[in-house]
Amino acid sequence: VTVDIKGMEYHFDNPEEAKKFAERMAKELGGELKVENGTLKVE
């Protein structure tokens, strides 16, 4: 699973970990979490 945090890509084997990480980063950065082509994106 790929997580894109404002252009920086992180790769996770575990989808649950990827989702938790993306949600935490969205909250910390005040960004919006989206799913695009199987990639979790925070913008």
Rank of each mutant, 00 (worst) to 15 (best):
I5N: 01
L33R: 01
A18S: 00
P15D: 09
K20E: 13
V3Y: 01
K20Y: 07
E17F: 03
I5V: 11
M8R: 13
N37G: 11
Y10S: 01
E36S: 09
G30D: 09
E9G: 06
A22M: 06
K34V: 13
T39I: 15
K27F: 13
M8C: 13
Y10H: 04
K20H: 08
F21M: 01
D4T: 15
V42K: 02
M25N: 04
I5A: 02
G30P: 03
T2I: 14
R24V: 10
V1C: 14
F12M: 01
F12H: 01
E28D: 07
Y10Q: 02
M25Q: 06
P15N: 08
G30Y: 07
L29W: 07
V35D: 09
V35H: 09
E28R: 06
M8T: 13
D13H: 09
E36T: 11
E32N: 13
M25W: 12
T39V: 15
D4N: 15
L40P: 03
G7A: 01
T2P: 02
K34W: 11
V1Y: 14
E36Y: 11
A18Q: 00
V35I: 13
E16V: 09
M25H: 05
K27A: 13
E9V: 15
F21D: 01
E17I: 06
R24F: 14
R24T: 13
T39C: 08
E43V: 15
T39D: 06
D4F: 15
D4P: 01
T2D: 03
K6M: 15
F21L: 01
L40D: 03
E28S: 04
Y10T: 02
L33W: 11
E17S: 07
T39G: 07
L40K: 01
E36D: 11
M25E: 05
A18Y: 02
T39K: 14
K6Y: 15
K34A: 07
M8H: 12
V42Y: 04
K20R: 12
G31V: 11
V42G: 03
T2Y: 07
M8W: 11
M8A: 08
G7H: 03
V42N: 03
E16L: 09
L33S: 03
G38F: 03
M8F: 13
A26K: 04
T2V: 13
A18M: 01
K20F: 06
A22K: 02
V1F: 13
K41E: 04
T2H: 05
E43Y: 15
T39P: 03
R24W: 14
N14T: 12
E36W: 08
R24S: 13
N37P: 06
L29D: 04
L33F: 08
K6H: 15
L29G: 04
K41V: 12
K27I: 13
T2R: 09
K34D: 05
H11R: 10
I5G: 01
V35Q: 09
E16R: 06
G7W: 03
T2E: 02
E16T: 10
E17V: 06
T39L: 13
R24G: 11
L40V: 06
K41F: 11
A22V: 06
H11N: 07
M25A: 09
K41Y: 11
D13F: 07
N14F: 05
M25C: 12
V3N: 01
E43R: 07
T39F: 11
E43T: 13
K20Q: 12
Y10R: 01
V42D: 04
E36G: 08
E23W: 03
E16M: 10
E36I: 13
V1R: 03
R24Q: 14
A26P: 01
K19G: 04
G30E: 09
P15W: 15
V1S: 08
E36A: 10
M25D: 04
Y10I: 06
M25Y: 08
L29K: 02
G30K: 10
G7D: 03
E17K: 05
A22N: 00
K34P: 03
R24C: 14
D13M: 10
E16S: 07
I5R: 00
Y10W: 08
D4A: 13
E43C: 13
R24H: 14
H11V: 11
E9H: 14
H11M: 08
A22H: 01
K27N: 12
G31K: 04
D13K: 10
K20V: 10
E32T: 15
V42L: 11
K19H: 12
E23C: 11
A22D: 01
H11F: 12
K34H: 11
E9W: 12
R24N: 12
K19Y: 15
N14E: 06
E43A: 10
L40R: 00
G7T: 02
G38N: 10
E32Y: 15
E16K: 06
V42H: 03
A18W: 02
V42W: 06
E28T: 05
E36R: 03
D13T: 12
I5M: 03
R24A: 15
E17D: 12
A18F: 02
L29R: 01
E9M: 15
P15V: 13
V3A: 02
E32L: 13
Y10F: 12
G38K: 02
L29F: 08
A18N: 00
M8K: 14
F12E: 00
E36P: 03
V1L: 12
A22R: 02
E23F: 03
A18H: 00
G38H: 07
H11Y: 14
V1W: 15
E23A: 05
G7F: 02
K27R: 10
K20C: 10
L33M: 10
E36N: 08
L33G: 03
A26C: 12
V35T: 11
E43F: 14
N14Y: 05
E17T: 06
A26R: 05
I5F: 06
E9N: 08
A26N: 05
A18L: 02
K6E: 13
I5H: 03
E36K: 05
M25I: 10
K41S: 08
R24P: 02
G7S: 01
A26F: 05
F21A: 02
M8P: 01
M25L: 09
L29P: 03
A22G: 04
G7K: 01
V35Y: 14
D13Y: 06
L29H: 06
D4I: 15
G31E: 06
H11W: 13
K27Q: 13
D4L: 15
